[in-house]
């Protein structure tokens, strides 16, 4: 771990967001999606964000993952201001700090499970011979080590989502940003994924922000927020 962050780790929150706002311009004018969001997330915490469709939940996650720039506000990650990073440093931030699980569980098609999990390691310049160890470890956390060389297209929906989670884990990020990770799963698979999530954060080294519509998913999180009219309220 970077020494620059290490000292802050004991006393500060992992993520600190102050008065974050975001507006899109859509040709006809400017629409405000987020209007001053403040939030703190500690390491090892699992946070749920709920809210109606179109309220800006995905937008918020994208900003947390530095996939979108914020319009205004502050965002500190382990005490470091990350909104003003250069493009290359943003990429580095995504490589080492964040793992994404997207709304529509994207895997690389025509690739095996192993190859899917290898890409984050390739971009992080991990030596080739060290990769299997990381990949197997990540798959073990979602109980899929036995599908190591399975073609991604032949996995079941639940398995795909678990592979997507494992892929988000493989670089040992400090935060996993999951956009409706159980949205396309049946009840049983949804519960299973949530079990894994609980186990992942229980180590105390990873935090998680989960966007969800499902109250049962939210019930298993440490804290639940709802996003409405561009503002975040803790329930």
């Amino acid at each position: 771990m970077n020494s620059q962050y290490a000292t802050l780790l004991d006393n500060g929150p992992l993520i600190q967001v102050n008065r974050l706002s975001k507006s899109y311009s859509n040709g006809h004018g400017v629409i405000s999606i987020l209007r001053g969001i403040s939030l703190e997330i500690n390491l090892g915490e699992m946070v749920a964000v709920m809210g109606p469709s179109g309220s800006g939940k995905s937008t918020f996650l994208f900003i947390l993952g530095l996939l979108l720039p914020a319009s205004s506000g502050d965002y500190y990650f382990l005490g470091q201001d990350v909104l003003n990073l250069s493009r290359a440093d943003q990429a580095d931030f995504r490589r080492r700090r964040v793992g994404f699980v997207f709304q529509n569980c994207d895997l690389f098609e025509n690739s095996t499970v192993y190859e899917n999990l290898e890409f984050p390691l390739i971009y992080a310049q991990i030596e080739r011979q060290e990769r299997p160890e990381h990949i197997v470890a990540a798959l073990e956390r979602v109980n899929l080590a036995n599908r190591l060389h399975h073609p991604a297209n032949l996995l079941s929906g639940g398995e795909r989502q678990r592979v997507a989670v494992a892929r988000a884990l493989v670089n040992q990020p400090q935060v996993i940003l999951a956009d409706e990770p159980t949205g396309q799963l049946d009840r049983q698979n949804g519960i299973m994924v949530m079990d894994y999530f609980n186990r992942i954060v229980s180590g105390g080294e990873t935090s998680m922000v989960i966007v969800t519509h499902d109250p049962q998913v939210a019930a298993r999180c440490h804290r639940v927020f709802s996003l409405e009219d561009g503002l975040l309220h803790e329930n």
Binding site: G65, L67, R87, A88, A91, D92, F93, R94, R95, R96, F100, F102, D106, F108, F119, P120, Y123, A124, R167, N171
Partner: peptide
């Protein structure tokens, strides 16, 4: 396109 987006989200730089 989606593959590209995904890779960038994983931290692939533009040059990569």
């Amino acid at each position: 396109t989606r593959e590209i987006g995904l890779k960038k989200a994983m931290g692939a730089e533009d040059q990569a």
